[in-house]
């Protein structure tokens, strides 16, 4: 197991190199001079040249890239923001916490609603209830998140004044972003829960339980649900990554100072160290999340241990 975790952590190296190389290439081939961006439109060419020198932009791209990677590895230095002059890492970490909180809340909301709807759907299979659940969950998956966001603001902030329209000064400010992202993932949880429940409900041991006179609610709660939750739990893990992406878009709608808004702003400002640092930190976080999710699979269902760790390969003992 430890060997597997180390191996997965080592995977970070090529991932980081790949992400950083792509963004460095973008930075190189995209028009627009970062020095000009920093100094403003009225700076003289001499001032721009001096700034380029100071930022190391006159060095060959490979040298710039190697220096950047060296800074991260040796000093944890992701560079300084062109806009504010402060280290990118110190700007991103508090924002990462905000985005993480929203993501976790969104996943929790999506999972709870999705699981409940999935169970209802499975227990009322092929009835109008089943179809209605499907329509509702598909509705939230089909409508773009920012549209749902604006509708939520209109309902909860403008019309009923129940929640703040933007910002996260109070805990209430987190509710709408979480709800908005969470609703978009309801459909996937509903479908997984439904199909998993249907599969489990047709198992022999459920039939046995029924034959032994157990009530339907007892069978659902104690026998079916527990086993049906394994694929749902796996889906929650993989959805974490997607939800971080969703949070990035919605942060601009809800005025949330998260890492997504930070990167979006940085892209428009040609603030390369912030874009690069942000992308790398997100890549690291997603890789770690994936690792934790894989480990959690093993804890939830030990049968998966051999599949995940050895990739399904079994050692065949050679005959003596």
């Amino acid at each position: 197991m430890i060997k597997y975790i180390i191996k997965r952590i080592l995977y970070l190296i090529p991932i980081m190199l790949g992400v950083s190389a792509i963004i460095f290439a973008l930075k190189t081939f995209t028009p627009g001079d970062p020095a000009r961006v920093i100094l403003g439109n009225d700076a003289t060419q001499e001032q721009v040249d001096a700034k380029r020198e100071e930022l190391g932009l006159n060095d060959p791209v490979v040298v710039q890239y190697v220096n950047y990677i060296k800074g991260i590895v040796t000093k944890g230095d992701f560079g300084d923001s062109y806009r504010t002059g402060t280290p990118v890492l110190s700007e991103i970490l508090p924002r990462l916490k905000t985005s993480g909180l929203i993501t976790l809340g969104a996943v929790a909301i999506g999972a709870v609603i999705g699981i409940i709807l999935g169970i209802i759907s499975a227990l009322r299979k092929y009835t109008w209830v089943d179809s209605l659940v499907l329509v509702i969950s598909m509705f939230f998956q089909s409508v773009p998140e920012f549209v749902v966001g604006l509708v939520l603001i209109f309902i909860f902030a403008v019309t009923y004044h129940l929640l703040p329209s933007s910002g996260i000064e109070t805990a209430a400010g987190y509710i709408m972003p979480m709800l908005c992202i969470g609703l978009s993932s309801v459909a996937s949880y509903t479908r997984i829960t439904r199909s998993s429940m249907l599969e489990v409900l047709s198992e022999d041991y459920i039939r046995t339980a029924r034959a032994k006179g157990q009530t339907e609610s007892n069978i659902t709660k104690h026998h079916a649900l527990r086993n049906a939750m394994i694929p749902v739990a796996q889906s929650i893990g993989t959805n974490l990554g997607n939800s971080i992406g969703g949070a990035m878009v919605l942060e601009t709608v809800f005025g949330v100072p998260g890492v997504g808004k930070y990167i979006t702003d940085s892209i428009t400002q040609r603030n390369y160290p912030s874009v690069l640092g942000g992308a790398l930190i997100i890549a690291i976080v997603l890789t770690i999340i994936n690792l934790l999710v894989d480990i959690s699979f093993i804890i939830i269902d030990p049968r998966l241990k051999s599949t995940i760790i050895s990739g399904g390969k079994k050692k065949v003992k050679k005959a003596a």
Binding site: L150, S165, S166, V253, D265
Partner: peptide, 19 residues
């Protein structure tokens, strides 16, 4: 001063009484 990039959200903040 609060900061919201989306113009519709800024307008709705006024309608909601938040701004």
């Amino acid at each position: 001063f609060t900061f919201t990039q989306d113009a519709a959200s800024r307008e709705m903040a006024v309608e909601a009484g938040d701004a």
